[in-house]
């Protein structure tokens, strides 16, 4: 697994060397508002300065998402979006930006459906969700993804799935939250590759006015146990947030605010809105 997560490493190393501040990873919901528009929105985000990508797979029951993403998933699914739409978006991003790390992000059930395995000879649930990920991992790797974030696959159940991903050169990106105990942080630190996704606040996705007050302490607790690069998401929506968290971690993930930007732009101005928004949050353009 020597090269597991190599694009993540290179991207973080380059960002550190450049001194340009934190990387910004946009989260784009595949198929929102329509599958046809997704490739152009991906290219617009790259033009705007995306330092990496989270391509979100819409799901019918997103229990960790606030209203902006719930609505986006509903719209995307109604427009016919599926995992194929997300893989197509990965391919688009990979072609447009060969060196940018791309992470597929979503909930477990749509990922499991690719394999259609109903093998119930397994001994326990964590194993049962491992093998069905094989088909997904193969296709995600072929499309050019570097890793996978599975919102509802905590470290406790992840060993079988992580091994399947690793066979295809994909990193399992773990999440940690302010509520995570030292024991859980250690378990993630031991298994992490690529980066660790820090959920900045105790709550669901969605823009907030301020970065959570206890975020610095949270970063400190994680830093004490690992050197794996950290990226922060949930609640980050403005350039000032990016600058603020950028003093603590090398990457910020922006989801709901970008989704809202797309939703509120005129139909023929969505790509431009995405590009301009990315320029602002990456500090390339002042508001």
């Amino acid at each position: 697994m020597a090269d597991l997560g190599k694009r993540y490493r290179r991207a973080f190393a380059a960002a550190a060397a450049s001194g340009d501040g934190p990387l910004v990873f946009p989260f784009l919901t595949a198929g929102f508002p329509t599958p046809e528009e997704t490739p152009e929105l991906v290219r617009a985000a790259i033009r705007g300065g995306a330092g990496g990508f989270e391509i979100g797979v819409p799901f019918s029951d997103p229990i960790a998402d606030g209203p902006a993403h719930q609505d986006a998933y509903t719209v995307a699914l109604a427009a016919g979006a599926s995992l194929d739409t997300a893989l197509e978006a990965v391919r688009t991003a990979r072609e447009a930006a060969p060196e940018v790390p791309i992470t597929l992000m979503g909930y477990l059930n749509p990922f499991l459906s690719v394999g259609c395995s109903t093998d119930d000879e397994t001994e326990q649930p964590g194993e049962a969700v491992g093998e069905p990920m094989e088909a997904l991992a193969r296709r995600a790797a072929e499309a050019g993804a570097d890793g996978l974030i599975v919102v509802d696959l905590p470290v406790d159940e992840s060993d079988a799935a992580r091994e399947v991903l690793a066979r295809h050169g994909l990193a399992m990106i773990y999440l940690l939250a302010p509520t995570s105990t030292e024991e859980r942080i250690a378990a993630v630190a031991e298994r992490a590759s690529g980066f660790i996704y820090l959920v900045s606040l105790t709550g669901v996705t969605g823009a907030r006015d301020q970065v959570a007050a206890d975020f610095e302490a949270f970063v400190g607790r994680v830093r004490a146990q690992t050197d794996t690069p950290l990226a922060v998401g949930f609640g980050i929506s403005r350039r000032e947030h990016v600058e603020q968290v950028g003093t603590l971690v090398p990457a910020a993930i922006i989801g709901s605010a970008l989704t809202t930007t797309i939703a509120s732009a005129p139909p023929d101005g969505r790509a431009e809105a995405v590009e301009r928004y990315l320029e602002v949050v990456t500090g390339r353009r002042s508001e």
Binding site: A64, D120, P125, A128, V155, S180, V199, T202
Partner: peptide, 16 residues
């Protein structure tokens, strides 16, 4: 676990 069923497929925030 009930054989291959059950488990804890929850967001990290809830695991503790």
């Amino acid at each position: 676990a009930f054989g291959p069923f059950g488990g804890q497929f929850a967001p990290e925030t809830l695991m503790p």
